[in-house]
């Protein structure tokens, strides 16, 4: 199943002789590698992680710096006006015209605050759409889910985040987004207790 990644176990051990073996940093990770013993049960997880890591590296390597865009002013505390000090009557501050609200990340992430909830991602099933473990996913219950949306679904009492899809026969399917093939699509059958809890409209993370 993971043949493309299975050379993780075959990296040649460094020989004592100076300069022998593969040159440092020439492997697929483009940096020095090392051999580690891992529990067999956890190898798919680690392989997933390495694949993601490699992809991330690849992207960062391919990214040629062309245009640098400066992020606008980001605030630590939200909802505060940029400028708020007392202005004596009859003498307006010249700065007042330029008062604008600072950018608020919640405004960017949230459309309908009364219907929006945050959940924490665990596992790699949605890795390819950029949902990694510990990420916060933004779930908006006010949205109506369409085919192709990433949804938070309840399946027999368990929460899961997957892409909403439909099979050729018209049955609802939940698709993982993980090209390693470690996760299988779930076809919703009539005996299943299935409900869409909300639509995932975004995510955020701290490094």
């Amino acid at each position: 199943m993971h043949s493309e990644n299975s050379n993780i176990n075959k990296i040649a051990p460094r020989k004592n002789r100076k300069g022998a073996g593969r040159r440092i940093g020439t492997g697929k990770f483009r940096e020095p590698t090392t051999v580690v013993r891992v529990p067999a049960s956890q190898t798919p997880v680690i392989k997933d992680f390495l694949a993601a890591y490699q992809r991330k590296k690849l992207v960062s390597n391919m990214d040629i710096v062309g245009e640098i865009t400066l992020p606008a002013l980001i605030t630590l505390s939200v909802n505060l006006p940029l400028y708020s000090s007392k202005v004596s009557a009859g003498f307006p501050s010249p700065a007042e015209e330029h008062v604008e609200k600072r950018l608020d990340p919640s405004e960017f992430l949230i459309d309908q605050k009364d219907a929006t909830f945050f959940v924490t991602i665990q596992g790699y099933s949605m890795m390819d759409v950029g949902l990694l473990p510990k990420d916060k996913a933004v779930v908006d219950r006010s949205k109506i889910a369409s085919i192709g949306d990433i949804v938070l679904a309840v399946l027999d009492g368990e929460f899961t985040i997957k892409t909403l899809s439909r099979s050729k026969e018209g049955k609802v399917r939940l698709l993982p987004a993980n090209s390693t093939g470690a996760y299988s699509p779930i076809e919703i059958t009539e005996e299943m207790n299935f409900e869409i809890w909300g639509v995932v409209t975004g995510s955020f993370r701290r490094f």
Partner: peptide
């Protein structure tokens, strides 16, 4: 506290 603490957000697989 699912909705009021970061560490308490529901965990989804």
């Amino acid at each position: 506290s699912y909705t009021t603490r970061w560490e308490d957000n529901p965990t989804i697989y």
